[in-house]
Amino acid sequence: MLIHILINQVIMLTPAQFFKCLSDDTRLRCITLLQKEGKLCVCELTAALDLSQPKISRHLAPLRQCGLLQDSREGQWVYYRINPKLPDWAFPILESALLAADKSGQFNKDLERLHNRQCSPEAAACG
Rank of each mutant, 00 (worst) to 15 (best):
K103M: 06
K103T: 01
L68T: 04
D25I: 03
D102Y: 10
T46E: 04
A101G: 09
L68Q: 09
Q70N: 14
L60E: 02
L34S: 09
I31K: 04
T32P: 00
C30M: 03
K36P: 05
K85E: 00
A90V: 04
K20L: 09
F107Y: 14
C126Y: 00
A61Y: 03
Q53V: 04
A16D: 09
D110T: 05
G75N: 10
H115E: 02
R81S: 15
N116A: 15
S120R: 15
L111S: 12
P62W: 06
E112I: 00
C119N: 11
A90D: 03
A61P: 09
V10R: 15
R58I: 01
A47H: 07
F18V: 03
Q35K: 14
S72K: 12
C126S: 12
L40V: 07
F19R: 11
E122R: 15
P54D: 05
K39V: 03
A90Y: 00
I93H: 11
Q76T: 12
L34C: 03
D25C: 00
Q53C: 10
L34M: 07
E95D: 14
E74A: 14
S23I: 01
I11E: 08
E74M: 05
R117M: 00
P121H: 14
D88A: 15
E44R: 15
D71Y: 08
D110R: 11
M12P: 05
L98N: 13
